[in-house]
Simulated assay, not measured.
Amino acid sequence: MTEPVAARWVVIDIEGTVTPTSQVREVLYDYARPRLGPWIDEHPDDPEVGAAVADVRAEAGLPADAGTDAVVAVLHAWMDADRKATPLKTLQGLIWRQGYADAELTTELFPDVVGALLHFHDQGAGLAVFSSGSVAAQIASFSHTGDGDLRHLFQHHFDTTNAGPKREARSYRAMTEVLGTDPGDVLFASDVPAELDAAAEAGWRTVGLARPGEPFADADFGTHRAVTTFDDISIEVPA
């Protein structure tokens, strides 16, 4: 981006934007996959787990008393299809949070990310995350990165539960209310053109990350500015 963008807030996607897709679909998915069943069985009285399991049964059309094996089979099928199902994200997030706490997981960010986020932060911009991964997973992920604990950089975390679907403008309008600013003061960075379309419809400014080797590297970003690195994103925080 040759010209700075006026922005009071920078909201970032995670997968394909600040972390390689392989970090999620290989490292994190492979970690959660064998642990889903044991986690469900070991937390029978956890209301968050119970609600997620009930939602899986309802969404998949399973009987209300379907056992763990049937629930896990659905969860695995959703993972194979990369379906952004909220109960799956909830259970994965709980498992990943424990994995980060046990120092079994570390988030690897693209090398241009941390310096850019620190610069935005130092300029006085607010930083937030909007990901299909649960808020619990987001916080855990940024607490254990190859660059240290970055949780202090972010003021808000949004997911499909507290904001809404990532490809619908209403989700971005809801986040604008939480951020307490005008939509034109928010810059959203994502590698998915459909998400950028929804953000732009809500009045946000947008920038697409077309990172070489990532799934959306050759995508048509239309009218959205597209860059290959955060080093090419420049902002100015209005006085």
Rank of each mutant, 00 (worst) to 15 (best):
D65L: 06
V56K: 01
G67F: 13
I40T: 03
E3I: 08
A60D: 00
Q98Y: 07
S134F: 00
E168T: 06
L209P: 07
V135D: 07
T223K: 07
R35A: 12
P111R: 06
P63I: 05
K89I: 10
F110I: 00
A194H: 06
D69V: 02
E236S: 14
E48H: 00
F142S: 00
M1C: 04
A239F: 01
D191I: 05
P238E: 11
E104Q: 12
A116I: 09
R25P: 08
L75E: 10
T229R: 09
G93D: 04
D55Y: 00
D149M: 06
G164P: 11
E195G: 04
T17W: 09
D122Q: 14
P47T: 06
A6I: 05
E42C: 04
A125F: 00
E201Q: 15
A198H: 01
P193G: 01
P87N: 10
H156A: 07
L75K: 10
T90R: 15
L109P: 11
E214Y: 01
Q155R: 14
Q98M: 09
R57Q: 11
T229A: 13
T176V: 03
D122W: 02
G67V: 08
S134I: 04
P111E: 11
A32W: 02
P183C: 01
R97F: 00
I235T: 06
D149T: 13
D185P: 00
A81M: 12
P111C: 10
L117S: 08
P238V: 01
T68C: 11
V27Q: 13
E108I: 02
